[in-house]
């Protein structure tokens, strides 16, 4: 695992995501506690932690799929509040890939990719289709463009989901356990696409337990537990020299196998 070379990152830009003093409750349950997280343009962050630690909830707050009760989230200069217009402005710039792909089963692969550009960005249909084909080529499945999602394998579906997000030309990509629902044989093809994105300088926040991917791609690895950020560091330091005993225990558990 350590033989893989880390992708060199270009100089990071200004801060694109500013999360300060974020707190969130589900009813009585305090799911996120005093989270501060600043992400720079071009930065690639991997978030790991045991289930229930709040890592998915955290990235779902960034495009307001979850609301927060305290603190502030500013994405590309827009603060997320109740204001629906601001929320949609943010969502337009933030792509998201889900654990269960969430492709639209009644639309073809191509239609999945062109729907949002046409109806949200008002891109002309032909232009949207050309762009979709470019991204489908990039995720290496242009030949499936006219099939329905139900006819594809899990790995292919997840690559379509990535292409669908890219078609909106997002400035940030959020990945919520993108390989957890995949058969082992298909994980590599999805990770390859994600590595390619990283190489192109995409700002990425990725909840995953693929530690090989984290070592290769991340500028920063964040470990969460109990709704808090327990530890964050560069991957080499994070994996070889974890500071917190909770992190050590977690790493020993997932790296043993």
């Amino acid at each position: 695992m350590t033989t893989e070379t880390h992708i060199e990152s270009a100089e990071l830009g200004d801060t694109i995501i500013k999360i300060d003093g974020l707190n969130k409750w589900y009813g009585q349950f305090h799911v996120l506690k005093d989270i501060d997280l600043h992400v720079k343009r071009g930065e690639r962050i991997v978030i790991c932690g045991p289930s229930g630690s709040g890592k998915s909830t955290l990235i779902r707050c960034i495009n307001r799929l979850e609301t927060h009760q305290e603190g502030s989230i500013v994405v590309d200069g827009i603060e997320l509040t109740e204001d629906t217009k601001h929320i949609n402005d943010v969502r337009r710039e933030v792509g998201m890939v889900f654990q269960h792909f969430n492709l639209f089963p009644h639309l073809t692969v191509l239609e999945n990719c062109t729907l949002a550009p046409i109806w949200v960005r008002k891109t002309p249909k032909r232009e949207a289709e050309e762009m979709a084909m470019r991204y489908l080529e990039r995720v290496k499945i242009p030949e499936q463009a006219n099939k329905y999602p139900g006819q594809l394998s899990g790995g292919q579906q997840q690559r379509v989901a990535i292409a669908r997000s890219l078609c909106m030309n997002p400035r940030v990509m959020l990945f919520d356990e993108p390989t957890s629902a995949l058969d082992p044989e298909m994980i590599a093809e999805v990770l390859d696409v994600m590595v390619g994105l990283a190489e192109d300088g995409m700002t990425m926040l990725c909840v995953t337990h693929e530690m090989g991917f984290a070592r290769k791609v991340a500028n920063r690895v964040i470990f969460m537990d109990g709704g808090q950020i327990v530890e964050q560091n560069e991957p080499e330091e994070f994996f070889n020299n974890p500071q917190n005993d909770r992190t050590q225990l977690f790493l020993s558990q997932i790296l043993q196998h």
Binding site: F98, A116, A161, M168
Partner: peptide, 12 residues
């Protein structure tokens, strides 16, 4: 997840 995916793409 269907509504969430649509929301994440910015569809109102």
């Amino acid at each position: 997840g269907q509504a969430e995916a649509a929301m994440a793409l910015g569809l109102g």
